[in-house]
């Protein structure tokens, strides 16, 4: 109403200033939108690039690890199973029929021994690929079994305790967790010179927790993040990619007493295993 009641010169002024003001406002708005969007796009592109690089590193690590595993398998089969079977064949060659009965029995017995050894070897290889305890009795038994074997060697004191694991996780999830535990234990045995390892499990508010304590040399979260972004630390990258698969998280830290290192794995607890 004020605009409409203004004098003749006042209306002219309002009209002129209003029009100029509106144009300036629109131009300012356009500049702001363009600049703001440019900044957002640049930031988004940077994040995408970083994610791609991280994915690439993880993928490379997992491929490399898979190749190493295949090489190990090939070496086991070629170096151990191959010669054993060749030796068994030697005992059972054609000349066996021309020999006396005692020698024949001796050769057959030797061949049987070798075949038994080969069966055991192949079973060990197969167990290293997929632990039967894990498949048949679950994560708790497989982890306890692994820790008993480590402790049985006598060089290190290893123990594990599952506080609440009545409802098993899905078998795929159990396998992923078991592989992560194997990798962590392997690292501790290789690099930490620890005298004891202890694993505890618990459940809290729909989350599954696993914690490994050890008294050797360890790493903290910043070291883990650094190694994850670098070209070394294949095992740790593999842990990261496996955790991503089960939407889990891992945290490396030092105990408040500064005596132990702790590795905590946290993942969502899904519906009970059927």
């Amino acid at each position: 109403m004020f605009l409409l009641q203004a004098t003749k010169s006042g209306v002219s002024l309002i009209l002129f200033l209003g029009t100029i003001g509106m144009i300036i406002l629109v131009v300012a708005l356009v500049i702001f939108i363009i600049l703001h969007q440019r900044r957002v796009v640049k930031f988004q592109n940077k994040i995408n690039q970083m994610e791609q690089e991280q994915q690439k590193i993880l993928l490379n690590a997992s491929i490399k690890l898979q190749e190493e595993e295949r090489q190990r398998l090939a070496a086991d089969l070629h170096d151990d199973a191959g010669p054993l079977l060749a030796t068994a064949r030697l005992y059972l060659n054609e000349n066996l029929v021309n020999q006396d009965k005692a020698t024949q029995l001796q050769s057959i017995f030797q061949a049987r021994q070798i075949i038994d050894d080969t069966i055991l070897l192949i079973r060990n290889i197969s167990h290293s690929l997929m632990p039967p305890t894990l498949k048949n009795f679950g994560l708790e038994s497989a982890v306890n079994d692994l820790f008993q074997k480590i402790s049985g060697s006598g060089t290190i004191n290893a123990s594990s305790r599952f506080h609440e694991y009545k409802d098993r996780l899905k078998s795929e999830k159990e396998l992923v967790i078991f592989r992560i535990v194997q990798e962590l234990i392997n690292n501790i045995l290789k690099h930490s010179s620890a005298s004891f390892i202890h694993l505890t499990q618990n459940i809290h508010a729909d989350k599954f927790y696993l914690r490994i304590h050890h008294d050797g040399r360890g790493i903290v979260q910043s070291d883990f993040d650094k190694l994850n972004k670098s070209n070394v630390g294949l095992g740790l990258k593999n842990i990261s990619s496996r955790l991503r698969l089960v939407q889990g998280q891992i945290n490396f830290e030092k105990d408040i007493s500064q005596t132990y290192y702790k590795v905590t794995i946290e993942l969502p607890k899904d519906e009970p295993y059927q």
């Binding site: 605009l3 209306v11 309002i14 009209l15 209003g18 029009t19 509106m22």
Partner: peptide, 12 residues
């Protein structure tokens, strides 16, 4: 730009 620039003119 068009509606903003002509707004005051159209109103008055």
């Amino acid at each position: 730009v068009y509606l903003g620039g002509t707004f005051f003119f159209n109103i008055l």
